[in-house]
């Protein structure tokens, strides 16, 4: 199961980096979203995927999921949600000001 998750996270990373290298701003933002999904899957996998009792410490439970990665993922998801929404607003404003959403066309705009 860990292998499958690793491959999935790896392909998310690959897709995310491919998108990050695109010229269109919206694709770049989607790329960062994919990257953060990949990172979250990684955190989940790194804590070992166990089945069994909920992450509450009891003496009887023989196998339980590690609660820490879940807490980390939750924090990280909230942060990436906030940053992505900020980026989308920023991209919209940049589009309004610059009349383009292609990164390569932003080069020539020296306003000094």
């Amino acid at each position: 199961m860990e292998i499958v998750m690793c491959i999935l996270a790896g392909s998310l990373f690959a897709a995310g980096i491919y998108m990050l290298l695109q010229k269109q701003l919206l694709r770049v933002i989607l790329g960062t979203a994919l990257l953060s999904h990949g990172a979250h899957l990684f955190i989940l996998t790194m804590g070992k995927l166990n089945r069994g009792a909920p992450p509450v410490l009891e003496k009887a439970a023989e196998s339980y999921t590690d609660p820490l990665p879940q807490a980390l993922i939750l924090t990280s998801i909230v942060i990436s949600f906030g940053v992505t929404s900020f980026l989308l607003v920023l991209a919209y404003r940049a589009y309004q000001t610059n009349h383009t959403d292609r990164m390569d066309e932003l080069k020539g705009l020296e306003d000094e």
């Binding site: 960062t32 990257l35 979250h40 404003r93 940049a94 000001t97 705009l109 306003d111």
Partner: peptide, 25 residues
């Protein structure tokens, strides 16, 4: 919100975002 700021801030934000994701990983 000047044009120059939008151009430069996008680079800054995307680069920092990428390194943050690398940090979590």
């Amino acid at each position: 919100g000047s044009k120059q700021q939008f151009r430069e801030s996008l680079k800054y934000i995307i680069l920092n975002l990428f390194s943050s994701i690398l940090f979590v990983t």
